Simulated scan of single mutants.
Amino acid sequence: MDVKLKQCFIAVDDHDKAIAFYRDVLGLEVRNDVGFEGMRWVTVGSPLQPDVEIVLEPPGANPDFSPADREAMARLLAKGVLRGVIFTTADCDALFERVEQSGADVLQEPMDQPYGVRDCAFRDPAGNMLRFMERAGD
Rank of each mutant, 00 (worst) to 15 (best):
C92G: 06
T89F: 11
E100N: 13
A74F: 15
G116T: 03
R75F: 12
D93L: 06
M111H: 15
V81M: 03
A90L: 11
E71G: 09
M73P: 06
G80A: 03
A78R: 08
R83D: 12
Y115E: 11
L107E: 04
D64F: 15
F65G: 02
S66H: 05
V85E: 09
E71Y: 13
V85T: 05
P114D: 00
F96W: 13
E97C: 06
F87M: 02
I86V: 15
I86T: 15
E109T: 14
R75D: 15
R75L: 10
D105H: 10
G80R: 01
E71L: 13
I86L: 14
D119T: 13
D69P: 00
M73T: 06
D112E: 04
P114A: 04
L77F: 09
E71Q: 11
C120I: 09
D119C: 12
G84L: 05
V81I: 10
E100F: 09
A90E: 08
A74E: 12
V81N: 07
D64N: 15
R83V: 10
R70E: 05
D105S: 15
R75A: 14
V106M: 01
A78M: 04
S102I: 04
D105R: 15
R123A: 08
T88S: 15
L95N: 06
V85S: 07
Q108F: 14
D93G: 02
R70M: 01
T89N: 05
C120V: 11
S66L: 09
F96R: 08
D91S: 03
S102C: 08
A104D: 03
D91E: 08
Q113D: 14
D64I: 10
L82I: 06
A90M: 05
R118Y: 10
D91P: 05
A78Y: 00
D64R: 14
L76T: 14
T89L: 07
E97H: 11
E97T: 05
Q113F: 10
G103N: 11
K79L: 09
G80S: 02
E100R: 15
R98H: 12
L77A: 03
V106T: 08
V106H: 07
F65R: 02
D119V: 13
I86W: 14
Y115M: 11
L77Y: 07
A78I: 06
D91L: 06
R123C: 07
G116P: 00
E71N: 10
A121V: 03
A74I: 03
A94G: 01
R123E: 05
Y115S: 06
A72T: 12
V106L: 01
V81L: 08
L76E: 14
Q113P: 05
S102G: 07
F122A: 01
E97S: 11
T88R: 10
Q113T: 14
Q113N: 12
D64G: 14
R118D: 01
D69A: 02
C120A: 12
F122S: 00
A121T: 01
G84A: 00
G84D: 01
A121G: 01
D91H: 00
M73I: 09
E109G: 12
R70S: 07
V99P: 05
